[in-house]
Design a binder for these strands. Sequence first.
RNA 1: GGGCGGAUAGCUCAGCUGGGAGAGCACAGCCCUUACAAGGCUGGGGUCACAGGUUCGAUCCCUGUUCCGCCUACCA
Length: 898
Amino acid sequence: MSGIELQKAYEPKSVEEKWYAFWLEKGYFHADVDADNEPFSIVIPPPNVTGSLHIGHALNSTLQDILVRWMRMSRRNTLWIPGTDHAGIATQNVVERQLAKEHINRYDLGREKFIEKVWEWKKEYGGRIIGQLKRLGASCDWQRERFTMDDGLSRAVREVFVTLYEEGLIYRGERLINWCPRCHTALSDIEVEHEEEKGKLYYISYPLSQDHNIRLTVATTRPETMLGDTAVAVHPLDPRYKDLVGKTVDLPLTNRKIPIVGDSILVDLEFGTGAVKVTPAHDFNDYEAGQRQIPNLARIKMLDDKAEIRPDIPDVLPDVLKQIAGKPAKKARGMVVELLQERGYLMKTENHAHSIGKCYRCKSVVEPYLSPQWFVKTAPLAGPAIKAVESGRVQFVPKGWENTYFDWMRNIKDWCISRQIWWGHRIPAWYCDDCGTITVSRTDRTACAQCASKNIRQETDVLDTWFSSALWPFSTLGWPERTRDLAFYYPTSALVTSFDIIFFWVARMIMMGLHFMDEVPFRYVYIHALVRDVEGQKMSKSRGNVIDPIVMIDQYGTDAFRFTLAAFAAQGRDIKMSAERIEGYRNFANKIWNASRFALMNIEDNFKPNADLVNEYSTPADKWILSRLQAVIKEVSSALTEYRFNDVASSLYQFIWHEYCDWYVELSKGSLKDENHSVRKASQTALFVTLETILRLLHPTMPFITEEIWQKLPAGTRGTARSIMVSPFPKADDTLIDIESERYMQPSMDTTLVIRNIRGEMNIPPSARPEAVIRPQNEEARKILEETQTYITSLAGLSKIHIAMDAAAPPGSATGASSWAVASLVLPEKGIDINAERDRLMKEIAKISKDIDVFSRKLSNKDFVDKAPKAVVEKDTLKLEEFKVKRDKLEQSLKILG
RNA sequence: GGGCGGAUAGCUCAGCUGGGAGAGCACAGCCCUUACAAGGCUGGGGUCACAGGUUCGAUCCCUGUUCCGCCUACCA
């Protein structure tokens, strides 16, 4: 007995704090360039500073931490760079909301003061998520924590912006963009979420200028925009209208005549009336059609940035204008509809479902809006980025996501990068009020580059927050400086993220990485699932179905939580999370704890395993578990290599609980008490080495409990490292793989199960110690069973065991069969219910008969015998034989029973 | 409209390259057996969505159908 004792149950809380502090203090998370060692680097997808840890972050970070801890233990120079994202619009909104409570808006404060406020906010609350990541056990190199708006990264942003501008890949122009009327800013295409909504389709008739009896009816979902129409389009081949092309209509409510044009792209013959109003300033299709047809008329501006109708539309009837001017779009719609109806232009309305674009930050309905913005010309950047994935320099896991990536990249549109908000990287462009020149510069300007006038203003727009995140893999390593870190750790090894930001982030990192570093930013992109609630719904505060990871951690412990996440990270499926699942793995943690407790109770303080793990004193069980252990090491390693986190979890769970605990710990109880010291020592060695190896295999997934136990093991059992996190990850030892021993254990294990089965069905309490008679099926089985009979005696709870090829089932016994032997359990003190036993036997016989049926039919099929692989046929033949013997024996027993 | 994924035990899901259907939870029975009741042992329960096809053999491969997700798209 050792003096080392564990408490009865695992208590996560204090353990977690203790070891995380220990790891930090020892500097184990920190990495430095070391040219002798191959690097493994990951950059964290920077969470928003506004964020608190939600379950998606927890999954994302856990998977990264598993990889990082695994690689670190595998002796790679491992770096995980953490940081946060300034999250432009999101953060600005949060601070604005906070100010609103004090009845202040940002315009009251002015730009400078407001930004100060945001920084204050960031200082106070921005670190919360980092603290939460630490509770999760994330082994990031915190000394390298970055923020997308810190000095270094801001320099990188400016360098990239100016370079792209100089290369002609950034331009400014007036285009139709998506405008969020609540956030008061432009959005990129992908920042708009489309939602199906019930709306109405309004049919409006436009009288032909030349003959008011002829009317052209158009259908629209947005009648208020008709004031900005510049044309009516019909299909050039439409027999109904083709003669009208070239004529004009009188636009209702205005004094304007607009042309009827033929446009085969815009107009679908089948839909609506076949005639479409063209409103270039309010619809992306119409914008393009306008450009095609009558570019000079394409720019009738109607809405300003408050989504109100402005009174500068040409030719609107004065009384109409008076009513509409200054009204929000929604209100204006009702009014226009009313006026159209009054004046006899509204033909009918229909219900109509169509999708509406909404702001991804605030869910307001976005408005197509014509305005001057900054754009990145993406096509030239996308080409190489597509090639990088095609050629495999970047690989997506699972591979299917590559299609999503290609699909978007091949149809990529220019990226609108300017935002009319204050929080972010201000665009480094200066407008000259004297000569009108735009100066774009790496350094702040006080004078125009063209005319040297001091009368210049910096652009007030800031950059899309995703602009800076696109640079993350190299900006965090010191770029634009050519640092040693950059040379060593770039490209990073893997990126772990979820599919919803493939476009926002992954694609753009690849483009920027290739353009500025001439190398991909990462080799592998592991795309994990989205975490949903039990009902499969996306978690959100408004639904009230959010599972707070910190609450789960408090309740079940970090390790159980992490293990759950890993176990559910099966590729290609969303994860439905629920608290009950975590509880199961909390129990698993406790199981490990107690197995360790058992092991520690069975050794001396100064225990040292045998140098040769297997020697002449090793029992079959010792050899078996060590052999199985090697297989598990291989499984876990290959699963990690292929990002199959759920397989990592399930092979460990299966092995630890159902092989190590259920079988080996029980089997070892005999030999651990053997009078022969060498026998004891051999089993202690197997018990301990297996446990210690399990802990190391498990450490990437369950860092805390493994460290806690590992530190309690006698020094002689755990090598030279001072922490499990810097001890070597297990490597399989092929010399310990012993198929013979694994097979050797089968007869006793199977027979044990048969006897337990009888006990279960006959309701024999565990305290009873019956005798058993075993009839092996062949000579080999007899030999093995005789040699391993103590295993059966102890694991099946028997008092005595009798093994003989020709033994008869004794009277008052119950019988069952494995493929090795037929076992009869004697119940002298209780006797058995003959009828019950007969039923049980018949049930078992029926079961086997079914198998026999299936197999004989299969084997009498000539095609199968001829065409199937030989091994399969042989295996099946053997099985059939075994089944038959089994059935014969059972039938004999039944006969004896009478 | 296009694309992707899913449909396997009451629930949640595994099942990698085709060869007698698995786990966890839940449920039922017997147990406080000296690591663990957050535990042990045992048991019940599935024409692997439907219809065809390929094959000696299909949960797995192919085609089609139905029902669910999700992504994407400018149907006025």
